[in-house]
Design a binder for these strands. Sequence first.
DNA 1: TTATTCTATGTTAACGTTAACCCATGAGTG
DNA 2: CACTCATGGGTTAACGTTAACATAGAATAA
Lengths: 342, 342
Amino acid sequence: MSVKLKDIAEQTGFSINTVSRALRDDRRLSDATRNKIKVAAEEMGYIRNILAESMRSNKSRTIGVIFADSANPFYAEVIQGIEERARRLKYSILLINIGEQAENERKAVRLLLGRQVDGLVIAPVYKDRENLALYQSLSVPFIMVGRYIEGLKSHSILHGDAEGQAMAFEHLLRRGHKKILYIAGPKNISNTIDRMEGMKLAYEKYALQIDESYIFESSGHMDDGYRLASQALERGLFFTAVVCFNDLLAFGVLKALHEKSISVPDDMEIIGFDNLAMSRFMQPGLTTVDVPKNHLGQKAVEELVYHIEDATYPYNTIHMKPRLIHRETTLDSHIQSLKTLE
Amino acid sequence: MSVKLKDIAEQTGFSINTVSRALRDDRRLSDATRNKIKVAAEEMGYIRNILAESMRSNKSRTIGVIFADSANPFYAEVIQGIEERARRLKYSILLINIGEQAENERKAVRLLLGRQVDGLVIAPVYKDRENLALYQSLSVPFIMVGRYIEGLKSHSILHGDAEGQAMAFEHLLRRGHKKILYIAGPKNISNTIDRMEGMKLAYEKYALQIDESYIFESSGHMDDGYRLASQALERGLFFTAVVCFNDLLAFGVLKALHEKSISVPDDMEIIGFDNLAMSRFMQPGLTTVDVPKNHLGQKAVEELVYHIEDATYPYNTIHMKPRLIHRETTLDSHIQSLKTLE
DNA sequence: TTATTCTATGTTAACGTTAACCCATGAGTG
DNA sequence: CACTCATGGGTTAACGTTAACATAGAATAA
């Protein structure tokens, strides 16, 4: 069996409690005692039983992490940030994927509560009466990353969905595009709603009407981008630019355009969202809205731990700034003006 | 405070133990009692304290997962498989990233042991005397995914690194390529060694010599692919094909080639490894060696749980079959033969 | 009938740790 | 010299659950 405090106590002649204190660096013990015990523990290969510690101290140093899909490159980077920061702060993370299903989200929360997590980091499904009630009565702190749910927005860290999407559209509208295809995201998450809102803001700014037939719904995956763009082209829909809910969709769109021999950005401009690591390496490099993914995860944990360690710490929505990253799927204003002169 | 067994016991009039049994579906209780207790538990919003359960039963239903970087799309997909299967088997996963550092790997193992995990799934650093000793004396079952370490190969689930890399090279050598650039992976992992071995096998098969100056070391990231390919070209190194340790490197290489206006596959053929989800959407679509990533993760958990539940279950290396996926960065034999006729 | 086995439940202890409280000793204080 | 107080450590109980054993009554068998 493994080494326990009891074994170290017997070995060193101190009581179990003294051993426990020594290993927790309790200053009320003499240096000599503390060192003697620590050395013995090290020699005996002692590993503290965190389960027992958690049980007794009522603090598990564990954070539950609930996402739709950890393999999605966007979430993968957020999770990376979460793991990194949690590890640094001496917390461990329990990861659960829920595939955008509100019911799975509830199950995940309950499971994690059963595991006595000290807090939760969640990318929640947007609208679900039952979930709202669940969160409102939740016994542990929780932070929502990159998304929010109505009524609990103060728990969210957001990255300017509306603002970012507006920037993307403005970049195109300003330069005269009239027919822009918008491939939207899954309808049960806040990002889809906010980005749609951003699109509207941009159109309003330029006093232009949105043609609803240019808005497609999607799951946010590459295949959908490919499929929807292909279909639109095959049906003869006329457009000069495509804005995508995220980069993955844009990858699919690029593939479709290439197959139809439509030249990007000359005949068609494309803008994504998220600025995934791969987006820079696409051919051509994808113009997109940058979101600080890793930082988002780190910040979420940081805030969460504040709440865990201080129950009075207030919840306030945190906003991060999106940035439009110009690459090769759009023409920048300079080049555009040159072309206009030709 | 939260509802405990004690509360349900008081509410229903049964003993704590009977309540515990009822909620665990113990068949020795009468249906009436079991139902009454379950209904009461449900009504009272009882959530079982898994920590306490784990403490007492000496089984945490937790699996520790140790990878270099969960944001790497390859591992992200493996982890997805792990999470999926673990969840289905009622296990939770604790995730730790170690960045290919042997020392971090040791720390992670110890941390997870402290958390009383029932088993580990690891992508280990290849060669480290201390780690070998650690694993040899490990008190819980462990499965290594996609990699192995010397002396413990039976714990691994592998996907034919040598075989897959040989297939890639053979495809090129068979069709007459003489100067093939190979961008290898990080040197402290088994994949790099085995894939290098696969390359050698292919050259031997065609009785050709390997020119060491065509082998570059890398970290396996996109930037390295870009940087190394750019450098090779700038230095005037002559080659007609590039084989990459993984798809990420290939993405970087494609970018570099495009910048130099080298046409793929006509002037240069490229083969990657891993068949990431994005590889199909690259422009041109990347020819690569497919590895069943999600399945690898699922299988790892499946095997691990066999070991957890039956200590006599034997360790045997499991081999999965790689497949060469022909896409647009290579010319297939048919097209090649047509070109030859020109 | 009486012994035996089942069935359904209760009682007690334990998992390994930490919290809360207690107690000796000796130094410093007035 | 008695008193306080800090120092260094021990004792006991508790966290919430399950394992192991015990038991009472009913059903069955001989």
